[in-house]
Design a binder for these strands. Structure first.
Lengths: 340, 340
DNA sequence: TCTGCAATTGGGAGCGCTCTCAATAATCAT
DNA sequence: ATGATTATTGAGAGCGCTCCCAATTGCAGA
């Protein structure tokens, strides 16, 4: 099964190594008869070309790496990652790439992983999940020469390729929806201001209020960290300002915020409305069901791979930028069904 | 930075390729002076040995693969996976292995992935997440010659190495706890009977009832699928049998079951008690907080890697088996604080 | 000083593939 | 039939490393 070489197949098929190589790689200039015969031998023997030898000779590993920096702590808590990973895995599979996973957990991990991913002969390209501003790994990776696509927009974008969800527009739509429903004191629980996700969703909130003639009240804005507990405490901070609606920059935070609101004996959506962001399954299983912004995470991962492959094949320049749209999912917590 | 070869380093340090190789691989028989000089050149130039060349020459790729079969659908819904993956990634990192991720989503994925993982020169060993009985990928992988460790016990274990959580004991402890608290009609929502996890947790339930003089009432047993919705419907099926306590084979199902119980106007734990399994963070953030069995998932993944590496280095025979223990986490839903 | 031995170093083959280039075979126009 | 042209095939070098073996060096003991 294993450990057959090109030469073995060649011998069995009565041709040369070169010819077998041509067949395996689907190159032209092989007569139909020979191609068929070689294919047959390969079929029977179950021959698989040796990955290392192929990589060494062709200088292409057909492997890409997904690097998740240390500052991406939501790896555990957020269903975002399983879906992203699935999309990426699917993309790799479909294009015959192997996926390497590099999770940076600690500073030591960082020291081991950085040299490894930039080592020649291992990866053809790298996908980096965007993290916090100033993350070591991201900064150092970006200046390597290997093709690279950021998943999520980084703070500094000069010359670097990325794919991102249109967070500004998503947040804008969420908040506009609340405005349209007539809410007057719309607060927000933002994501970390050290991440572009956090900043952009805040920007969308700001934009929606402005365009629709609301003034931004600082007492209705507070920062969360994309965790349930973070949302809970954020809501407690917001409560004194008497908001009648909240846009939470993530569903998980919305869940925490709702818990805090309920503990304060507020009814949802009668006393206070909520819109989240992400559309995690959880949000659809609770009562009341969460109105939210859905992002196509699976597709997002899949596309990231395709962009990277395009980069690998056609060069890094110019940098590619892709934005993907979102969708407003109206459920119970925004009160749309009972108002208007 | 990249594309330096051993030969380049050798030239710069005024020694031979062989000597540099010895230094890089920390082999003996290099004089201190030479070693220092070579190390210096490597330091300055940022040389990294070419992975493919090394793999080809040494027949070791220093890479292991994690294969997640199609029948493992909980990949998305369960926090188990992020933690497992983190543990595995940590193990790889610490032992200087690269981690390859192979998620099998569809039948087509299967056809692409199977040849790839068994291709020589790519992986030194494979970790396979246990899935359902009869899963193609698992069966075919197991009979390959490459070192392999199953994460979770498979149905047929002859000759194969695995690491597993002691599910029987965990479930036994959970149910024993309920018995001790005096509950009389203890029901269970099991996992799929096609998985050993499901079977074992059921076995623990059975064992606890038997040993403590309860008889097993079939109307108090129903099968779930490790999802929230599955738990919800399972609970609805159980309700007519009037259980006063439920052991759910996973927290996620417990959450669904609790929702169903609450909709039926049962108070928890006064009217009905719950114990889950997994200790997902979610379970600790809700009200009432879930009593559960904690499994050391991170450690589990880490150990799996170490077992695999041991296999790679010392051969597949004999098969290694490791069981890891669990811990009962007592919170609100079992009613321990108000009873006894 | 010389021999013997161990420690250190260098040279060479080879891992299994790709890819260029030359050789051969097949095809066609003349 | 002949030379020119093109399609098919094979040989060989080389990708960058490891590892064996032989050569060299250093040093202790006689």
């Amino acid at each position: 099964m294993a450990d057959l070489t090109l030469e073995d197949i060649a011998k069995q098929a009565g041709v040369s190594r070169s010819t077998v190589s041509r067949v395996v790689n689907n190159h032209p200039h092989v007569s139909e008869g020979v191609r068929k015969r070689v294919l047959e031998v390969i079929q029977i023997t179950g021959y698989q070309p040796n990955a290392a030898a192929r990589t060494l000779a062709s200088q292409r590993s057909w492997m890409i790496g997904l690097v998740v920096p240390r500052s991406v702590s939501s790896f555990f808590t957020d269903p975002y990652f399983p879906h992203l990973t699935r999309g990426i895995a699917k993309g790799c599979n479909q294009h015959d790439y192997t996926l390497g996973l590099f999770l940076v957990g600690t500073k030591e991990d960082e020291e081991k992983i950085l040299p490894r991913v930039s080592r020649s002969g291992l990866l053809d390209g790298i996908l980096v999940q965007a993290g916090h501003h100033g993350d070591q790994v991201i900064d150092r990776l970006v200046q390597s020469t290997i093709p690279l696509v950021m998943v999520g927009r980084p703070f500094h974008t000069e010359g670097i390729s990325y794919i991102d969800v249109d967070n500004i527009e998503g947040a804008y739509n969420a908040v506009s929806h609340l405005v349209r429903l007539g809410y007057q004191r719309i607060g927000t629980i933002t994501g970390p201001s050290k991440s572009t996700v956090g900043v952009d969703r805040m920007e969308g909130y700001r934009k929606a209020l402005n365009e629709r003639g609301h003034t931004l009240d600082e007492s209705l804005v507070t920062e969360g960290d994309f965790t349930e507990a973070g949302g809970y405490y954020a809501m407690q901070r917001l409560l004194p300002a008497k908001p009648d609606a909240i846009f939470a920059a993530s569903d998980i935070m919305a869940v925490g915020a709702i818990r805090a609101a309920q503990e304060a004996d507020l009814r949802i959506p009668d006393d206070i409305a909520f819109v989240g962001f992400d559309d995690v399954p959880l949000a659809n299983h609770r009562d009341p069901k969460l109105t939210t912004i859905r992002q196509p995470v699976y597709q997002f991962g899949f596309s990231a791979v395709e962009i990277l492959i395009e980069l690998i094949e056609n060069g890094r320049e110019p940098a590619r930028r892709v934005m993907v749209g979102t969708e407003l999912i109206i459920r119970d917590t925004c009160g749309a069904s009972r108002r208007r």
